[in-house]
């Protein structure tokens, strides 16, 4: 599905070059559920952002569905991203001014999907996540777990091929966290490729493979 080869990312501070990612190789097959682990500052989120094309890298090759991402222009990258990748954030990042329904609908709007079709797709997802009753509420009226559920629903609405999650349970209590991880597991069973960043061994165990990062390098 995707392949990273010799990825480097660095920042220069004065005369020093600090490596955020150092010679990372990673290959992900469709249907995998990968957990990226490592201590704070080890480059987990950076790696996830690079994979998610939210961040750039300085050296190396990145092929996503046989497209050479490192050669693509910004615009092509974002259309690739828009089409195939869904993102879930630790802090949910819902738009406070929009209702649950509208939050979920927004990515579809950006993909120029027709109103009637949008309605069907959102209704479908609401139904599936059992949040139909909450569709007219605003994010601030929901609990953290419910907000994250909406966040996941939003990430999935456009039927991506890859779901990226940056500590999706970081702001949740353990019961809510378990529910979310259960959901991820279920999605993976249905064939969704998932990469998550997590601190917790327990959450990592839901995945099919664990990548350990240390100081920007994959620990082998």
């Amino acid at each position: 599905m995707l392949e990273l080869k010799g990825i480097y990312k660095w920042v220069n501070t004065g005369n020093n070059r600090v490596f955020l990612l150092k010679d990372v190789d990673l290959s992900v097959q469709p249907g995998e559920f990968i957990s990226i682990m490592g201590p704070s500052g080890s480059g987990k989120s950076t790696l996830l952002n690079v994979i998610g094309m939210l961040d750039t890298f300085d050296q190396g090759e990145y092929n996503f569905l046989h497209e050479p991402v490192h050669k693509l222009k910004e615009k092509q990258r974002s259309s690739l991203y828009k089409q195939y990748i869904g993102f879930v954030f630790q802090a949910y990042h819902l738009i406070d001014e929009l209702t649950v329904y509208e939050n979920i609908e927004t990515p579809l709007i950006y993909q120029d999907i027709k109103t009637s079709e949008r309605k069907a797709m959102v209704a479908d997802v609401l139904d599936r996540f059992q949040i139909v009753g909450k569709k007219d509420l605003f994010p601030t009226q929901l609990s953290g777990g419910q907000q994250q559920l909406v966040g996941i629903a939003r990430a999935l609405i456009a039927r991506p091929k890859l779901l990226l999650a940056d500590e999706p349970t970081g702001n949740l209590n353990s019961k809510q966290g378990e529910e979310i991880m259960g959901l991820f597991k279920q999605l993976n069973d249905e064939g969704m490729t998932i990469i998550q960043v997590t601190h917790s061994e327990k959450n990592a165990a839901y995945g099919s493979r664990i990548i350990n990062l240390l100081d920007g390098m994959v620990a082998r």
């Binding site: 993102f87 954030f89 738009i95 406070d96 927004t106 990515p107 993909q111 990430a155």
Partner: peptide, 16 residues
């Protein structure tokens, strides 16, 4: 700014 960030992260193009 946060709203802009979210919107971009869920697929908004700049012109949108």
């Amino acid at each position: 700014a946060r709203e802009v960030g979210i919107r971009k992260a869920i697929g908004s193009m700049r012109w949108q």
